[in-house]
């Protein structure tokens, strides 16, 4: 009796483990998200430098660090923070461009989905035009206008 329940439990657990594999990948989910992008890493490192700076300030006020040490170290930390900020800005520009490009890709993908696939494949030369166009990008033949604006 107890053994039977135990075996049922094992089977139930196995089904529970297998279920995610059998279900199709839901469309909203892409690959696993990246947790630490170079940009967040840079920002976080800058936070650490600020924290170090705060600590230094506190230790100086508490009388643990002499004036010369304090000034030299402060200079050092600020330099490090500036470097990280610069690197982050460069990275941010890259990311911004990435976002713009990604957005364009996404709009084009969406447009593509709205249109039947063959609508911008040239009937003459068979060239697959990447965008809905009136004339073929390869041979210049006029393409049939489909219900893309529906």
């Amino acid at each position: 009796m107890v053994l039977g329940i135990a075996i049922l439990l094992v089977i139930g657990m196995a089904v529970y483990v297998a279920t995610p594999l059998l279900s199709p990948e839901s469309p909203g989910e892409g690959a696993l998200p990246i947790d630490v992008t170079p940009l967040t890493d840079l920002k976080r490192r800058r936070m650490v430098v600020y924290e170090n700076l705060q600590d230094l300030e506190f230790e100086y006020k508490a009388g643990k660090v002499s004036r010369e040490d304090y000034e030299a170290l402060r200079e050092n930390h600020l330099g490090e923070a500036a470097q990280l900020m610069l690197a982050a800005q460069e990275q941010e520009e890259v990311t911004e461009n990435d976002v713009i490009i990604e957005r364009q890709v996404a709009t084009r993908r969406a447009q593509r989905k709205l249109q039947p696939h063959d609508s911008y494949t040239c009937p003459e030369c068979g060239f697959e035009n990447p965008l809905p166009v009136k004339f073929c990008g390869n041979c210049g033949t006029k393409l049939p206008q489909h219900a893309s604006k529906k």
Partner: peptide, 11 residues
């Protein structure tokens, strides 16, 4: 990097 395989592994 598949979420559904990860889910199965977690289970």
């Amino acid at each position: 990097r598949s979420p559904r395989v990860l889910k199965s592994a977690q289970r």
